[in-house]
């Protein structure tokens, strides 16, 4: 299956570049060390570098932010094609909704996805086991057939486990986890939803966080970052996969996703028409405070 997807991806990329439809195809390639990494294809002849398998976990939508402005003043913003899994398309949907990306500047090569595996194993990532969206909600071209995969039900087990602890235990847990952080911002940089020109963590006036690489700064950054993604995080796990210190960041995002669903009945990136929950309200709603 992945092989036929790979062939189709290469063909499509070559075509798009030959016809001049796009200036670049963003996809995946294999590094000389054998690991899959993002690839940027500019020439039709390079299209054969593209690969597809169950380790293509990067969310490539993050690179669209680099291509929002023209390379030189007065020029057009070049159109790019991007290989997108269903979860990646939900992230793109959030960006479209927030007016970050012009739809006509992106050619979405949607891929029917059977799920991504945990690093170095053949075991599906937990989020992929739960995923019910095997085909992207929109695309300009679709590659692959919808795979026959039975999704397991979302039970929020990881979140519930932590909720079951006492507040003191939870604090101890997060103190331990946050303390490992080195403030490298790999989580933020890998996240398509984190595109602020200046992050509150690096803002100088007012100085919310400061320069120290110590527990208060680390905790502040992670808590606020997760909160800024409330109703926007599509659970692509790019943050957690990028984290060199193995901080379970998805737990923060999933806690918020769980509450957003319970409070507002909303799932991020699923529907381009509904505004994200913290950008809207209902006058008559009863919310537990």
């Amino acid at each position: 299956m992945s092989e036929s997807i790979q062939t189709a991806l290469r063909t499509r990329a070559r075509e798009l570049l030959e016809l001049g439809e796009v200036s670049c195809v963003i996809g995946y390639e294999r590094s000389p060390r054998g690991r899959v990494r993002p690839a940027f294809i500019y020439e039709p002849a390079d299209a054969d570098r593209l690969v597809w398998d169950n380790t293509c976990h990067h969310n490539l939508m993050v690179y669209l932010h680099d291509r929002k402005t023209p390379p030189r003043r007065g020029e057009e913003v070049p159109r790019v094609a991007v290989v997108a899994k269903p979860c990646d398309v939900r992230a793109l949907n959030v960006l479209l909704h927030e007016g970050q990306i012009a739809r006509e500047k992106v050619f979405v090569i949607g891929v029917a996805c059977a799920g991504m595996c945990e690093e170095g194993t053949e075991e599906l990532q937990a989020r992929c086991r739960r995923c019910r969206e095997r085909v992207p909600i929109f695309y300009d071209a679709l590659v692959g057939e919808p795979p026959k995969v039975t999704a397991v039900d979302e039970d929020w087990a990881d979140v519930v486990e932590l909720e079951g602890m006492s507040a003191a235990e939870r604090l101890a847990f997060w103190t331990r986890e946050f303390d490992r952080c080195i403030r490298c911002y790999a989580c933020r940089q890998a996240c398509p939803g984190c595109y602020c020109f200046e992050c509150m963590a690096e803002q100088v006036d007012p100085l919310w966080v400061g320069i120290a690489i110590e527990l208060p700064e680390k905790a502040f950054f992670h808590v606020m970052r997760a909160y800024h993604l409330a109703g926007r995080c599509v659970e692509c796990n790019a943050c957690e996969l990028a984290c060199p210190m193995h901080i379970p960041l998805s737990l923060l995002n999933r806690k918020i996703a769980k509450e957003v669903e319970a409070l507002f009945g909303y799932r991020a990136g699923g529907d381009p028409q509904t505004p994200p929950p913290l950008a809207t309200f209902r006058k008559d709603e009863e919310l537990p405070l």
């Binding site: 932590l162 604090l171 918020i256 509450e259 409070l263 507002f264 913290l278 309200f281 919310l287 405070l289």
Partner: peptide, 26 residues
């Protein structure tokens, strides 16, 4: 109305990272 949504969520989230929900009031 915006504050109401924001803090309904913040309440639960702060509790999750160990800041007891009872320490925040809206």
């Amino acid at each position: 109305y915006h504050a109401r949504r924001r803090y309904a969520l913040m309440h639960r989230f702060l509790d999750f990272v160990g800041i007891e929900a009872d320490r925040l009031c809206i």
